[in-house]
Design a protein around this nucleic acid. Structure first.
Lengths: 345, 345
DNA sequence: GTGAAAGCGCTAACAT
DNA sequence: ATGTTAGCGCTTTCAC
């Protein structure tokens, strides 16, 4: 059972292992007669090749291109790294290497260039965070035409050719955010802090959260007013100025949320102005966010698990590429965790 | 990166591969000095052993015991076979063999004996369908004390030591069954056909379905009467007699369901008595059930995917045993499919 | 066309 | 206590 080797096939066919290998890989230079005989024997004996031994001997290395936004240390996209590293070392055992391609998430040309660059590496598979939807659709069409499998992380786009997808349910995340925010005390006004530059991006990944948030408010706190303030991450002074102005005009606001990972950006302002009696909720376990959680400035963080997304994306691709095994589940929503200062560690 | 081999470690340590292998496996006969040097080099070089090469060379074979109820051809538990076979051939590539242990699902002593038998095979892992709950708890406690991982299929028991579990959401299945049954036309009376002998079993796996069914009726068809008829699968004539009696007493009944896989047992009776204008719903895609679906006697089947459960259970165990990889998800509910004559094939 | 031989990373039996 | 060797199942040169 399953223990038939190439040697057995060779012996039973009256040829050498080399010849069997040739027909196994459909290579030239085997007589019609031998080929047929060998094929018959394979059938009879129920021979199945051992992928692992094959990989070991051939040394064929395939690569998976991982296309993600570039980041500076401490930013959201950096959270994927540990998962990528872990999965990469597993994949290495199967002769699959992981190559990184980064793009500027605010520059579509950079995204296009990243796609070209990835393709140039002749990957056997691609992991991609599709921040530019239309552009991604063009790229995946090309991947499909080349027969290259791909998986989405962070979000997916509406199409049907991907191997699997990993992401967080955005709408529910926003809904949950509103729930947590209003849980501790009644809220009549909420401040949403948003990123100025996100307006530039074709697809703002936080729209789903915004909708979920809005629906929760509509259903549960119809009298609550939601304010927006836009800030620029690169301009800390500007952040302080805008928030200062806002709180002078709206001194009664006691609830703040962000729909992105940047809640930490407002921490200095809150600390410097002694604004302690607030309820502050954000997303993602960036080191800076966790610090703010521990110090009590931020009350709760909703986290997805980017490292898990990355690891499983790479794993799915690796297994598909070398073992031809399809993932157990195609669309995967990672679970959300709610972190407070009491379970931050 | 990840490409450091035992040879590299040997060279850098100034010893032979053999010695490196010895420390890698904590075997005797290495000088303190060499051991420390080698350990240091392993650390520095970031050496990680290649499991696949190791397996290939050692030829160590581990086994997984699969403990399921025995069955005769065409019965429910036979549906697991194809999944077991498939997973077994995959596992074989990793030197894991699957051994079967069967028990009589109506005889607790037989179940106990099966557990003993499985244990005697010194398995590296166990797959089990826990039809006897209390008895299973005792067995898994023993597995835990021996450090043997196990996974549940079909149902799980309430404890916390299993590696993963696969099953169908019983309650929802029953709820769905009632929905489908009452979909086509109003129903005032329903006949549930049950198995006489299931009373004997300590845990009837269909109770969950019965509850879901009952709740649907209560919520949506409060005026509907539910009848029960008990039959003995081994006594076809008795089946006909009991059903005949029932329909003489309740000629208005137009809806029939089972909560187990045995809907096919009532097909001969329905055919022989020309009872065509009924709505009949059952569970599981047994060959006999599919035939009844195609011929129109049964209107719908709700199917779980036993073969998928088995395959994934074995896969989880194999990966855990040889690669130390934990399953992506611990509790898994397989999806339910609704089969009618139009999508039976 | 085909066989023989070496080698992939690792293990295990046998030397020394 | 350590090195050498053969071999796991398969691939890949290199002969013939």
């Amino acid at each position: 059972m399953g223990k038939v080797t190439i040697k057995d096939v060779a012996r039973a066919s009256g040829v050498s292992k080399g010849t069997v290998d040739r027909v196994l890989h459909g290579r030239e230079g085997v007589s019609r007669k031998s080929r047929e005989k060998i094929l018959r024997v394979i059938e009879e004996l129920g021979y199945e090749p051992n992928v692992y031994a094959s990989l070991l001997a051939s040394g064929i290395v395939r690569s998976i291109a991982v296309i993600l936004p570039e980041y500076t240390p401490g930013e959201f996209w950096g959270l994927y790294e540990s998962g990528i590293a872990k999965a990469a070392s597993e994949a290495a055992r199967l002769n699959v290497e992981v190559v990184r391609v980064a793009y500027n998430q605010y520059d579509i040309d950079s995204f296009r260039a990243a796609c070209r660059e990835a393709l140039a590496k002749q990957p056997a598979g691609v992991v991609i965070a599709p921040l530019f939807q239309a552009e991604t659709a063009l790229f995946t069409a090309e991947l499909r035409s080349k027969g290259i499998p791909y998986v989405f992380v962070d979000t997916k786009i509406e199409e049907d050719g991907y191997l699997s997808s990993y992401g967080m349910p955005m709408y529910r995340g926003g809904y949950l955010c509103a729930d947590i925010l209003s849980y501790r005390r009644p809220c009549e006004e909420i401040l949403i802090v948003r990123i100025e530059r996100d307006k530039l991006r074709q697809s703002d990944p936080t729209v789903g959260r915004r909708e979920g948030f809005r629906d929760f408010i509509r259903e549960n706190l119809p009298d609550c007013t939601v304010h927006n303030v836009f800030i620029d991450p690169k301009d800390p002074e500007g952040v302080a100025l805008r928030l200062g102005k806002f709180f002078r005009e709206h001194p009664g606001v006691r609830h703040i949320a962000t729909f992105n990972s940047r809640i930490h950006l407002i921490v200095p302002f809150l600390e410097q102005n002694g604004l302690q009696d607030l309820t502050v909720v954000g997303f993602d376990n960036l080191p800076a966010n966790l610090d703010a959680l521990r110090s009590g400035v931020v009350n709760a963080l909703i986290t997805q698990h980017p490292e898990e997304q990355a690891a499983r994306a790479i794993q799915d691709l690796t297994e598909f590429i070398v073992l031809k095994k399809s993932p157990a589940q195609r669309d995967n929503f990672v679970h959300m965790d709610i972190l407070t200062r009491y379970n931050a560690d």
